[in-house]
Design a protein around this nucleic acid. Structure first.
Lengths: 351, 351
DNA sequence: TTGTAGGCGTTATCAG
DNA sequence: CTGATAACGCCTACAA
């Protein structure tokens, strides 16, 4: 018997083996495997039993070849130093891929680079990815979007500057989060607050600044524009901005950096100036990266549900690929997610 | 013409299109694509030109189906909180996969878990991975190795406890690195040094302890066993161990934690006890994770060439899969890598 | 050095 | 509801 031969040779059972075992045709097995209609329930059970008995798993290559689909999702991300964002991202995207039986292929990008377009083009051609997930700031790069739309590949963006630019996009209410973060600082008695902006290419930068100014307005605190410094989401830019702020004649009693990396830089600057945190200056960050809880004092910050956002974006992307009715509940899942304020000891009442 | 139809329909060119364009048979095209011998140079050039002209890319599914290979490498890793290790790992493995035209599929594991065997089994069956890369501590889990050898999948381990347990393995001279780290601390005048061990399941723990005791011996410093505390590579275990050490009647003037996570814990403990670093106590870690340079003061630690190790392990694995002669230079690349001492400001001369 | 035939394990088409 | 048969694009074996 051929089936036995296979088993003896440790070969995987094929759809033919299952069909023979169940006494049906391969097409019926195929129907069962793919949850297609038009199979009597009894037949379906019989086939399922055979599948279990033979430990049958469909061959991905054959399936892809025949169906002209790759069942591959591509994740294109910036291969930056800070990795906890990517870690959470990966968890979410991978989770969604697994539940939908898709494979995930990675394409890290080292920015800035002149070869981005080419790199992405060959990535798509080679992997035949059916759709790609683009976390910030990749989803905001015009050349990337151009290549992708030229290749006719559906895209899901995470935290893009312009939600409308992609087929699917998810983001956070970062303005609201920064608003709440600022109110927390204000509630501690600080009125002279330094603010370090993020890289202008990120949606996040504008959102966060907006939330900050909004909070000042709401609380009737005049905005001192000179207390708002440029930053680029890097450690060193945060450190430099902090030096500028802390060496002022009348330095701020609290500094809000728009990400944890820069908040680290602020802490270093404060230490270098022999300032005590939070006694002399309160410090807050944004992102709740792994370092935030490791610093001393632990950093007050904001956590975004990155994993959930990534999972939602990917699920919606796959649903679109499969062609599910857009009326399905998941397809309508909101693109806007809430952030969570994480208060630690780096912020304290004004002394 | 069929070729034109394809172009019009935006379909990828196939091997037939290239063959027709170049005026040869598909087998010749196949030979050129796979760099097989027995093709006249002129013919080869002609085919290459056609490949370029038609933007031909072999269809991975068809190739895999026919050749009965998946061209997939699996990476099974622990999905822990600390991710910079995994980040470096990923870079290396991905790099090697790309240069050899393999795809990388990920399987994060949340430990401890009772379903590890099952998870890995279905991962391999589903992805048909030809080989897997196992970073520590996954490569030391007997049930994992058992499943994999039962499935007859070649394995490359990174920093395993027993290098011989896998087909291929790479590791670092962590004992030597810890020896040098300890000598650095000794050179600063410290003779009363606390040491926090790592999780006993990791090869690293034993190596690092060995390097430490060796350094003490070499420098004729008596080993005070009571200054060696248990730790498990976690932040909290480091913090607790530090409390035990620093509350002693005669506390150590320096503490070596066997990873950065625990060193963070030591720093927190020191701060909580109002001790100044490095004035009251010098602190060193191991791994040079992202946090190390962000802490204040920046942490003295040891950097392992994780990326290079991962790349080497993966390359060797793939070469084995391809069946290259083991005499090839890369195949003989050493399994032992050097570590680098990174001296920062958390260690200073004894006061 | 080059080409031909057959098959890899699915899914799609269309007939029963 | 079910099944025979033809793709899908490539590689291996064997011829020429």
């Amino acid at each position: 018997m051929r089936t036995d031969e296979r088993a003896a040779a440790k070969l995987r059972a094929t759809i033919f083996d299952v069909a023979r075992h169940a006494g049906v045709s391969i097409k019926t097995v195929s129907r069962v495997v793919n949850n297609e209609p038009n199979v009597r329930e009894a037949t379906r059970d019989k086939v399922r039993a055979s599948i279990d008995a033979l430990h049958y798993r469909p061959n991905a290559a054959a399936r892809g070849l025949s169906a002209k689909r790759s069942f591959v999702i591509g994740l294109i991300y910036e291969n930056s130093e800070e990795f906890s964002y990517t870690k959470d991202l990966l968890s979410g995207v991978l989770g969604a891929c697994e539940t939908h039986n898709y494979s995930l292929l990675l394409r890290p990008l080292t920015l800035p680079s002149a070869e981005v377009s080419h790199s992405i083009h060959s990535f798509i051609r080679l992997t035949a990815a059916e759709g790609v997930v683009l976390p910030a700031p990749i989803g905001d790069m015009p050349e990337v979007m151009q290549v992708l739309s030229g290749l006719d590949v559906p895209v899901a963006t995470i935290s893009p500057k312009h939600p409308r630019s992609a087929d699917i996009s998810v983001y956070c209410d970062e303005a609201d989060a920064t608003f709440r973060l600022t109110e927390h600082v204000l509630a501690l008695g600080h009125t002279h607050i330094g603010f370090i902006k993020g890289h202008p290419d990120h949606r996040a930068s504008h959102e966060r600044l907006a939330g900050f100014t909004q909070a000042l307005q709401t609380n009737k605190i005049g905005l001192d524009a000179s207390l708002t410094e440029d930053g680029f989401f890097t450690f060193e830019s945060g450190r430099q901005a902090a030096f500028r702020l802390l060496r002022r004649e009348r330095p701020p009693t609290a500094i809000i950096a728009t990400n944890d990396e820069m908040a680290c830089g602020v802490m270093h600057a404060a230490h270098e100036l022999d300032l005590h945190i939070p006694h002399d200056v309160s410090i807050a960050g944004f992102d709740d990266t792994a370092v935030a809880s490791r610093l001393w004092p632990p950093l007050t910050t904001v956590r975004q549900p990155i994993t959930e956002m990534a999972e939602a974006a990917t699920s919606r992307l796959i649903q679109r690929l499969i062609g599910d009715e857009p009326g399905a509940p998941e397809a309508c899942s909101p693109g806007l997610f809430p952030c969570q304020l994480v208060i630690r000891r780096s912020t304290a009442a004004r002394s």
